[in-house]
Simulated scan of single mutants.
Amino acid sequence: MTYAERRLWQYLRAGRLEGMKFRRQHPVPPYIVDFCCVEAGLVVELDGSQHSPAADAARTRYLQSQGWRVVRFWDNDVLREVEVVVAMIWDFTSRPALSPTPLPPGEGL
């Protein structure tokens, strides 16, 4: 783990974020995501200077196609304002994922 990942993990581990359970280095084949909260369907990725916007966009699209919501932060954001990053992650975990509600039987097409 990078220093930024270790720092953020101190806030996410062991249910420290309002009881939400996060996993680190979780496999979502063919990828391994930095952090995820299965209950909230949320992937948290930290990006450093080695990240390619095109590769990150393809990765995000794939994860979204698998039903995950993806939020990305720069390593520097975690290092400078970790409390703000944690608050934003909490906003995502407490906000329900947008999914269409099925119509009752007999309604629709």
Results as ranks from 00 to 15, higher is better:
residue 39 E to C: 01
residue 53 P to T: 10
residue 74 W to E: 14
residue 50 Q to M: 10
residue 43 V to C: 01
residue 45 E to F: 09
residue 48 G to R: 12
residue 41 G to M: 04
residue 74 W to T: 08
residue 72 R to G: 01
residue 64 Q to R: 15
residue 45 E to C: 10
residue 42 L to I: 06
residue 52 S to G: 04
residue 53 P to R: 11
residue 59 R to L: 01
residue 58 A to C: 12
residue 40 A to Y: 05
residue 71 V to Y: 05
residue 39 E to P: 02
residue 61 R to N: 07
residue 46 L to S: 04
residue 72 R to H: 08
residue 49 S to V: 13
residue 45 E to K: 10
residue 40 A to D: 00
residue 62 Y to W: 15
residue 57 A to S: 11
residue 56 D to Y: 05
residue 66 Q to W: 05
residue 61 R to M: 06
residue 63 L to S: 11
residue 48 G to L: 11
residue 73 F to M: 02
residue 40 A to W: 04
residue 48 G to Y: 06
residue 62 Y to T: 02
residue 63 L to D: 07
residue 50 Q to N: 11
residue 73 F to C: 09
residue 76 N to E: 15
residue 64 Q to M: 12
residue 47 D to Q: 15
residue 54 A to W: 13
residue 42 L to R: 00
residue 47 D to N: 15
residue 45 E to W: 08
residue 64 Q to W: 12
residue 59 R to C: 02
residue 69 R to F: 00
residue 50 Q to T: 14
residue 54 A to N: 13
residue 61 R to K: 12
residue 75 D to S: 14
residue 44 V to F: 01
residue 61 R to C: 13
residue 72 R to W: 11
residue 54 A to R: 13
residue 54 A to E: 14
residue 42 L to T: 00
residue 68 W to L: 00
residue 72 R to F: 08
residue 73 F to E: 05
residue 43 V to F: 09
residue 70 V to F: 01
residue 48 G to P: 08
residue 46 L to M: 03
residue 61 R to F: 09
residue 69 R to T: 06
residue 73 F to V: 09
residue 56 D to P: 01
residue 51 H to I: 07
residue 67 G to L: 04
residue 62 Y to S: 01
residue 76 N to L: 15
residue 68 W to Y: 04
residue 41 G to I: 06
residue 49 S to C: 12
residue 40 A to K: 08
residue 58 A to W: 12
residue 69 R to W: 07
residue 41 G to S: 06
residue 41 G to A: 09
residue 46 L to I: 11
residue 73 F to L: 06
residue 43 V to A: 03
residue 52 S to W: 07
residue 52 S to N: 09
residue 42 L to G: 02
residue 59 R to E: 01
residue 72 R to L: 04
residue 74 W to A: 13
residue 45 E to V: 13
residue 57 A to I: 07
residue 42 L to F: 07
residue 43 V to L: 08
